[in-house]
Amino acid sequence: MTLCNKVMVVDDSRVNLKIIDLILRRAGYETVLVADSGSVLKAVRDSDPCLILLDIDMPGLSGLEICRQLKESDDCSHIPVIFVTGNTDDATIKKAFALGGRDYVRKPVNEVELLARMLAVSVQLELTERLKYEEKMSGILELAGTICHEFNQPLQVILGSAELLLQKLPVGATGRTLAETIVNQTCKLGEINRKLMNITTYEHKLYIGNSRIVDLEKASTR
């Protein structure tokens, strides 16, 4: 399981930033520290963290407002947010979750609690990614199955008809080479279809430019 590594910490208090930074780096995380609430969105886009620890009470933009903006943005909404706050009244916590926060940690920060909650969110994130992968796989398999079924019917008719034609054409007759080509190429298409039917993993390769296609040789068990 590949868990989250780069974590952004947002807090207007330099002391809090330093404490959390120390805890995270000791635990093996890479950190991105942001003290200015107004620059969080840009910093997120620049550094692409996999998790954000967000203070709530900050001058300028509050953590709740930053969370709302993150969740409304197309490119940042997938990044999980854990609030780090001294303000744990019911209304604030309710709002924090309503705005898309995954969890919260009370200040002063307890090292064990912080790391445990981060790990829990990280595992949750990984499971979500795995589910997306499974859905993608399932879609590919369904598509492959449909293509195979729909293609194999006409392929059967083309192959059989070309073979019948070959039977009727004497050796050396005009068109015999063409009929043989049709038979050979139809057999090749049938083989490609069999590979499609045996796709078991999502393996892909570069195609043209940055576009990617399924790597049939690796994805198929056949």
Partner: peptide, 8 residues
């Protein structure tokens, strides 16, 4: 048999 099957 899996289509396309050779008629032979």
């Amino acid at each position: 048999f899996i289509k396309p099957v050779s008629i032979k």
